[in-house]
Design a protein around this nucleic acid. Structure first.
Length: 637
RNA sequence: GCCUCUGUGGCUUAGCGGUAUAGCGGCUGAUUCGUAAUCAGCAGGUCGGGGGUUCAAAUCCCCCCGGAGGCUCCA
């Protein structure tokens, strides 16, 4: 049985004309209307004839379940043949419909639309996520058949569901834990001892245990550190970034770009908005409905990109590409990518509606080259996150693929677990539901056991065809490449979220939080004890080739030191008479300090300079984006 | 989208039917200071917006608009 459940403000129908299979009906049955109803469009299928009672039970169970969730007291049962191409006999269908009606009628106000009649109907869909659900139900012993995924795009205003209404099926997932020795374990039986984070991740992915009792700690940190904040003048999930946040983002963006140049990627720039009616894009969009911002421009209907795929694939389509150029890599630092995520999912920097995503695509000659590239990019992603400050121990790996791909590439997939030297979560599908046959993600598990994806690579076997992307092979024939999608770090904002959450966990465990030195907005804070030490403080600051500032405000040393600590500044230098005499400086090193036990070391300015240069070697650098003198700095919060 | 909670000066916040609290920050003055908050003074609010109940509303009720959490979703 195919079941489509719509939580509606109202549903009404009127019988127009009978079909040859029409059931006989009374006059009162010719029209019907229910307010605040769960409407169940039902198509009884051939396979259901083998066990009518079981089908009725299962359908009743699904309807009860959803009706309970949406708190609907009224249920409209609506026979809808168009949901299936393999219908049962009318006799069985009527029997099933009546059976369902009878089973529900005790607990709900149930109405049933007549079977076998052409009916005019109007329905107003409430539009919340639970308001549109489809279910495929099969009798015992029969395998589920995946219907072709077709999509119904909800209208903004009152919606009239038409003939085009069809179901969007969901793929069945098989979950496993893959250990580095190549064994697939059941997620229920696997011993998670020593892999507590993986356990949290698995719970998050499979059990959907996501209740949380407090706001994630990075939200307060992002504000206190003057990195980012909510912008009430914009849409939710569109953040403002203060100078320190912009600096951190800029450094991260530059770093990811540099790393991708190293593997041969060409940086490009593509438009933010696209024509909704463009035939190729329309087809692509139809697979992922209702998640993009749309805007009206004159009479054209545009949408904002949710990745760089559109622009890069359209560019690839127009290019002349020889096999000699493959693998061909292009990257764009998308500022921004837009996704109209559901309101309740937006928290701090974890999930945004406008975010900066490095998006790299690699065109490969064939699956073999794609797999080689996948492996190389898997390792690249590990290295990128490591240098950002997110280590292998800080994330959990998920690998997702089709059963066919796994059977052809068992050793290769096992190797992914070997590389990270720990068990990984595996999700397998019988049929390919998405555009990829293989993907991995690195999932950061935060202080509240919520998981979110950072780096990812996917092997796309669908879009070369859809976008008409070709390369000319050695034999002079145009062929379709296999395309890899890769985000080496994941969204830049999400990296910042990860770093802040990681440091929040460090604080909870009795550590001293800080950002990597190369990302710290102020790397050295110089604190003169009084006005007369200002000149020497200036001299010290001038000798340091990094982001130095001077706290020249009229406050006590104690207060200035406290504020430097609250800003997580890696090196704090107090300048007084002693330093002016010896020429040496007293440096508090945050990385080596413990709570209430600062580590203070006497050294020369040259030594401090050398230390910082070696710590930040090979990483991007930008100057201080704020006034050097704290006394003239504005406060953002 | 739905459910729950929430909205008091730039920030954090007390008050929850009877003239609006305090701290931080800001400004002014004093202090020139050796490692987690120097002292004093001043300015700053039609308590998110609109409507209603009441002699009286920040406080109770209704509608709207922000914000947070949950559900759901997550290429």
């Amino acid at each position: 049985m195919q079941l489509l459940l719509i939580h509606s403000d109202y549903i009404e129908y009127e019988v127009k004309k009978s079909t040859p299979v029409a059931e006989e009906i009374e006059e009162s049955f010719r029209t019907g209307r229910l307010e605040e109803a769960l409407t169940a469009f039902m198509a009884v299928e051939k396979a259901d004839e083998s066990d009518v009672d079981d089908i009725i039970n299962k359908a009743v169970g699904e309807i009860r379940n959803v009706a309970g969730q949406v708190k609907a007291a009224n249920v409209m049962l609506y026979p809808y043949a168009h949901l299936s191409s393999d219908l049962s006999s009318p006799k069985v269908a009527v029997a099933v419909l009546k059976g369902v009606e009878k089973a529900l009628s005790g607990d709900y106000n149930v109405k049933r639309a007549p079977f076998g009649w052409y009916k005019a109907f109007r329905i107003s869909c409430k539009g919340h996520p639970l308001s549109e659900l489809s279910r495929s139900i099969v009798p015992q012993g029969k395998p589920a058949v995946c219907a072709e995924p077709v999509v119904c795009i909800p209208e903004e205003k009152e919606e009239v569901v038409s003939e085009a209404l069809k179901a969007e099926s969901t793929a069945k997932s098989y979950w496993h834990i893959l250990t580095p020795d190549g064994q697939l374990h059941s997620t229920e039986d696997f011993d998670f001892t020593g892999h507590e984070n993986l356990k949290k991740f698995v719970n998050y992915e499979i059990s959907k245990q996501r209740a949380v009792e407090r706001a994630p700690p990075h939200v307060e940190l992002m504000r206190r550190l003057e990195i980012a904040d909510y912008e009430p003048g914009s849409d939710s999930g569109n953040m403002r970034f203060y100078p320190k946040g912009r600096l951190i983002k800029s450094l991260l963006e530059n770093f990811v770009l540099e790393e991708s140049y190293k593997v041969g990627a060409m940086e490009v720039e593509t438009p933010l908005m696209y024509d909704m009616e463009h035939p190729t894009l329309k087809k692509y969009l139809d697979r992922f409905p209702a998640r993009q911002y749309s805007i009206e421009s004159d009479k054209r209907h545009m949408f904002l990109r949710f990745a760089a795929c559109f622009g890069q694939f359209l560019m690839n389509h127009d290019m002349t590409i020889s096999y000699k150029s493959l693998p061909l890599k292009m990257i764009e630092m998308t500022r921004y990518s837009f996704r109209k995520e559901q309101r309740g999912e937006l928290v701090g920097l974890r999930r945004l509606r406008a975010f900066t995503m490095p998006d790299m695509h690699s065109l490969c000659t064939d699956m073999q080259q794609a797999v080689e590239q996948f492996d190389a990019q898997y390792n690249m992603c590990i290295s990128v996150l490591d240098k950002v400050g997110i280590k292998v121990d800080d994330f959990e790996v998920a690998v997702r693929f089709t059963r066919d791909f796994y059977n052809d590439n068992k050793d290769f997939i096992t190797n992914l677990a070997k590389t990270v030297k720990k068990p990984v979560l595996v999700e397998m599908w019988d049929t390919r539901f998405f555009y990829f046959v293989l993907k991995f993600e690195f999932n950061f598990v935060d202080a509240l056991a919520k998981a979110s994806a950072l780096s990812t690579v996917q092997i796309d076997v669908e879009n070369a065809e859809r976008y008409g992307i070709n390369y000319i092979d050695t034999d002079g024939v145009a062929k379709k490449p296999v395309i890899l999608h890769c985000s080496p770090s994941g969204a830049i904002e999400r990296c910042i979220y990860g770093l802040l959450e990681k440091e929040a966990m460090r604080t909870e465990n009795g550590g001293v939080p800080m950002l990597p030195v190369w990302l710290s907005p102020t790397q050295v804070r110089v604190i003169p004890i009084s006005d007369k030490h200002m000149e020497f403080a200036q001299q010290i600051a001038d000798q340091l080739q990094c982001r130095v500032d001077i706290d020249d405000r009229e406050d006590t040393v104690g207060k200035k030191v406290r504020e430097a600590a609250r800003e997580w500044i890696p090196y704090v230098v107090v300048i007084g008479d002693k330093e002016a005499e010896t020429g040496n400086i007293n440096v508090t090193i945050r990385a080596e300090s413990q709570p209430e036990k600062p580590k203070k070391v006497e050294m020369t300015a040259e030594q401090l300079n050398a230390r910082i240069l070696s710590e930040t070697e090979g990483m991007p650098y930008k100057g201080l984006p704020l006034a050097k003198m704290l006394s003239v700095r504005p406060k953002f919060l």
